[in-house]
Amino acid sequence: MTATTGQPASVAARASDVWKVYGSGEAQVIALRGVSAEFERGRFTAIMGPSGSGKSTLMHCLAGLDTVTRGTVHVGDTTVTGLGDAGLTKLRRDKVGFIFQQFNLLPTLTAKENILLPLSIAGRKADPAWYDVVIETVGLRDRLDHRPAQLSGGQQQRVACARALVARPEVIFADEPTGNLDSRSGAEVLNFLRNSVREHGQTIVMVTHDPTAAAYADRVVFLADGQIVSELIEPTAETVLDTMKKLDTPAEVAG
C-alpha cells in the first residue's frame, strides 16, 4: 500500500519501494517490504506500529543512518540511497536533524554549546533572530549556561529539540522523543514540536508507539510486518488507538 498526500513538489522526504533485509538464509529477517511513503514539507507525521513492525528501520533508512536493500530514499532533492560517508555527513549537516529518546547531549558542553554544536561543526553561524526564536520557544533562556547533568530530563530533551531546530533542517527525525520522559514533560516537548511545525513550517517525522504522542501529529502512518497498512489524517488519541487495535498485535497498544 502506498501512502500519498499533497503535491510531489512539497515533499520533504520520500521512500520509494524500500526493502530492508537483514541476514540471509534461514536467519533472514525482512524488516521492510517495499515501503513507499512521502512526507510533506511543513507537516508533522508520526510513524506508528507495533514493536518489530519496522517503524524504526524506516526512519533510520529515511535519515540515511541505515542503507536500504532495494528501493530509493530522497530527502528534499537529495537522493540518499548510494551516498558515501562524506555525502551522508553533508546530508546530516544541511538537511536532517535528530531528536533521540536518550537526549544524547554532550556532557562536556553547556546547553547553549550543545544547541549550537551542529552549526559549529559545520562551520556556520546561527541566524541570531532564529536562534532567539528557538530559545524563546523552548523556554530555556535562563538555563543556557548549565551542563546537561544540571538539567532535568524534560529540559535536556528541550535542549535536544532546540539543537535539531536551530539549523533549520529540511526534516527533523524524532525517535521516541518522549519515551524517557514523564507525561507532563512529554506533553511540553510534543507541544513544542507541533508549534514549530505550525508556526515555523518545520517538517518533522516522529516514530512513536504512544497513541497520545501520535495524536499531536498532522498525520499518522501505520506499519505492520514491514508494510504500510493504514494512515490517519488529523488523528486523535482515540482514532489512533482504534486503528492500532485493528492491527494484529494489540498488546503493544497499552499506552
Partner: peptide, 8 residues
C-alpha cells in the same frame, strides 16, 4: 551522536 549531527 556527533556523527549523526554532522561531524565528518
Amino acid at each position: 551522536l556527533l556523527r549523526a549531527i554532522g561531524l565528518r
